[in-house]
Design a protein around this nucleic acid. Structure first.
Lengths: 194, 194
DNA sequence: GCAAGCATACCGACTGGTCGGTCAAATCGA
DNA sequence: TCGATTTGACCGACCAGTCGGTATGCTTGC
């Protein structure tokens, strides 16, 4: 049970993610987290400065991973429509595969300390901008309609992605990859010139 | 100051909405709410059973209003594409005009007592179903593409709507009506048959 | 006189965080 | 090689403060 080989720090992050997604950040006590991880509060405060710090770490992990994958796909070869399609489908897939992270992300943002929140927002913004650049690129080339601001298209799409956590279920009929294909399809279609 | 003519009950709901949207449900104490409304806890617990009950009331108001408007537009005259367009633009507009409600809605759902949450979910579901029926209607008529499940189209669209609270600002360049038009446009375009 | 509409005073549970201490492993000096 | 010393990982008891909620009583208007 507790003789899990996974290091304590990882276990704390893992259990915290599960609990935060389930009950929310504020409704989860530090006591519950450390109990779930099979350690005590002393251990947690040995690895993290505060409960906020723990949450910050969760955000950091997600942001790093998503940015990495987007850069890879966006800077890859092929026409812009294909790259956007791939990036869109991929972000849906990784979101579904880390649904707990996603739930926490958009539910708890406002609970972060102001400075932390600012840095998370900035990181998120860079991500959105990279995505938006794909849209504007296609608009310049004329393969995407240009009468809707690229910024709004991105907000439109990521709204859908962020809200996967409220309805998607791994036990449902559709796999993450399938939803990704559908979403990417809807996005690309909505960008078709008239 | 306190001699506001607005009845205490309304004032409590109003201030609670503002505070919940700002700091979140769990980070807002009952003390803060009653202070903002210029009364004491005795007053609040006279009108509401609990803090949860207050939150429930906020959900109820939003749900009732949105359902009412959707029914009016969906059951109205005109071709289905126009009705869907109108309904989509309208829900964006009302969301933007009640942005605090929207923020609370998707951030605090998981904090409701299980029974309450269940009833909110059910109500929300009926709303989605009415919206979805518009999509299937258009698919049957052949004016919308049918290779994407209507259910998913609805989830896709309402993800975007729900997330308006995270990026839309009344001080921004775009009015609620403008965003509504753009969103409805994107939705209708994404449904165009090939 | 009697509800309805509040205020005041208070309770018990629980919170995030601290702090002194333990214990095994690594490092070091001779 | 081996004892001494330091270090990192972690425990468990304990704060001071805050929370949602309640019990009771006053004050109006009818």
């Amino acid at each position: 049970m507790t003789h899990d080989k996974e290091p304590v720090r990882q276990r704390l992050i893992g259990e915290a993610t599960r609990l935060f997604a389930d009950r929310g950040f504020e409704s989860t006590s530090v006591q519950e987290i450390v109990a779930a991880a099979g350690v005590t509060k002393g251990a947690m405060y040995h690895y993290f400065d505060s409960k906020d710090d723990l949450l910050h770490e969760i955000y950091g992990r997600v942001l790093r991973m998503q940015m990495e994958r987007l850069t890879l796909l966006a800077d890859g070869p092929g026409p812009v429509a294909e790259r956007l399609h791939a990036a869109a489908a991929d972000v849906v897939l990784t979101t579904v595969e880390n649904l707990d992270d996603s739930k926490i992300f958009f539910r708890s943002m406002h609970l972060l300390a102001p400075d932390t929140r600012k840095s998370v927002r900035a990181e998120r913004r860079r991500y959105h901008e990279r995505f938006r650049d794909l849209v504007t690129e296609g608009q310049r080339e004329g393969v995407f309609r240009a009468d809707t601001p690229a910024e709004m298209v991105v907000d439109f799409f990521f709204g859908s992605v962020h809200h996967l956590g409220t309805w998607y279920s791994a036990e449902g009929a559709l796999s993450g990859a399938e939803v990704g294909e559908h979403f990417a399809d809807l996005l690309l279609t909505s960008l078709r010139p008239k």
